[in-house]
Design a protein around this nucleic acid. Sequence first.
DNA 1: CTGAAAGCGCTAACAA
DNA 2: TTGTTAGCGCTTTCAG
Lengths: 335, 335
Amino acid sequence: MVSHAITLKDIAKQLNVSVSTVSRALSNHPRIGLKTKERVLALAEKLNFRPNPMAVNFKNNKSRNIGIIIPELAKHFYSQLITGAEQLASRHGYNVVICQSNENTHKETILIEALLHSRVEGLLICIANETIDAAPFVKILNSGIPLVFCDREIAGLNISSVISNDYQGAFAATEYLIHKGCKRIAHLAGSENVVNSQYRKQGYVDAISKHGLTYQKIIYTQYDKSQAQVAMRQLLLATPRPEAVLCYNDYVAFDAVEIIKENELEVGKDILIIGFADEPIAQYMTPKLTTVLQPAFAMGEQAMEILLLKLKEGNKAREQMSKILDTQLVIRETA
Amino acid sequence: MVSHAITLKDIAKQLNVSVSTVSRALSNHPRIGLKTKERVLALAEKLNFRPNPMAVNFKNNKSRNIGIIIPELAKHFYSQLITGAEQLASRHGYNVVICQSNENTHKETILIEALLHSRVEGLLICIANETIDAAPFVKILNSGIPLVFCDREIAGLNISSVISNDYQGAFAATEYLIHKGCKRIAHLAGSENVVNSQYRKQGYVDAISKHGLTYQKIIYTQYDKSQAQVAMRQLLLATPRPEAVLCYNDYVAFDAVEIIKENELEVGKDILIIGFADEPIAQYMTPKLTTVLQPAFAMGEQAMEILLLKLKEGNKAREQMSKILDTQLVIRETA
DNA sequence: CTGAAAGCGCTAACAA
DNA sequence: TTGTTAGCGCTTTCAG
């Protein structure tokens, strides 16, 4: 069994000085004798003293915890994002409390409540797909706790955020297809109500019209496997059928590819496919998926950076600090 | 800005009772007047009072934190495992501090040190591949903090653990191949020094010999993509070449499949392949991978269950509680 | 330069 | 049944 954690008192007693002297020595207080300081530091070192974090937190009325809410940890994108955020936080002495909303807005609200009660010092949230109500987030801000959105955001709220440039990614991917000579490019979109999906759709639309193409076809899939498959079948039935399909994400792309293969067409030749995200699936499927990489790690890191900044500056800086990180087209085999 | 967090004192003042009375009322102390209690509870409810967790932790000298060390969060298996562990912990009022060793034993040791200093109440560790030195873990135990191994363990230490039945999984997979008529089954193993790899290899060996097969071929891949590919090429060169290959994990299986395809052979027909883990890759590759499912979520959950039990029982129960969870063969297209 | 004392929010032993 | 008091470990006035 552990003997007993070393406290300031122990050091003070052994050195015949007061507790406050020890405290000052350890915290580099200016008004302390050099000799005393050295004696204290030496003994602290020798005893392997560490300040009791519970006491410190209590004293400072700080939890040193940052709450993170994501839809689902078991998605590669989010675990990458978390890794970026966590590493930075931990380097600054913060713990990270990770919660999963499972894309459920109600659960998200509950989690926010719980995290606030547990006195997290800041909140980094990747909101659930369906979330539109701003009230819970306004509440966070009103409670004086800094909040940063990551990956997804609610527009018009003046809340700091780090997102990837969905618009630019979709635009670049579409242009790439156009440069490859495609005239008929379709888009399997996500949900009409979700901003990321809207941005991607807009990138697609604008690239199409910039290049004066007349063909434009958008089908919403609601992130549903069977709906994506139905949509792809529908695209294949059309005459003339599209030469390329830009998909909302890699999973939709995977479904599309499966359907195309079922129809004995060759992906990457008869029809080009581009996904979005660069999940591991992109490298492992056959043919390998050309897709738009979102910098998940950097997104988490930079969102945390903003949060830490707000934490340091206290109430001073309540202004919005937002970043939009560029995506990158990763060319593989499907386009 | 937040007004001011409600404390016991606030309630006491408003009700003209002492702080301890309020404390007793809220903690269901027996010696308290029913009326007083109701008044306190009502006001606490009205003011939405929550005890200050920092104060509670300090008072109890408990951090309510459990440390978890895993090799890498961005692997599906571990994020699943974490999810199982985290959910259970959180239901019991514990936070979980997640750390990644990146399969680096040195970093693992540093993390253990840091977690102990941060006063975690318990530790759940999936050790890094190369870790063999027991000293850091003995140190944990000596410091009186309960420790549970998950997924991987160091044998002979009498430390509680939850692992999956690698032996049985490999045995069943091999038998399945035998029942399918294969006489020449090879095994692409992991590393000779890692217990999981040893168990799987042994399952393979024993199934082979149980059924009186004479062919037996094992190549170690060291979890290295190029080594796995080299090994598979080697297998294909042999005459007669194996009819089936049991792979250490899904990634090795993926590499093997790629090489086989390169050689214009048909996976699932010319050569059968079985993986291990059931990572998402298994469903997304072509052909879809037959593999041995490890119950990652349940493993995390049950490891946490043991840890919570030890936490509750204090020093009383230091005996080893170990579980070996069964794996399950998931039959898809490669075998 | 150093010590004594108060206080953060909560609980619990002791008094009344 | 309720109030008073002390104390958890640390920092920070305020005195000396």
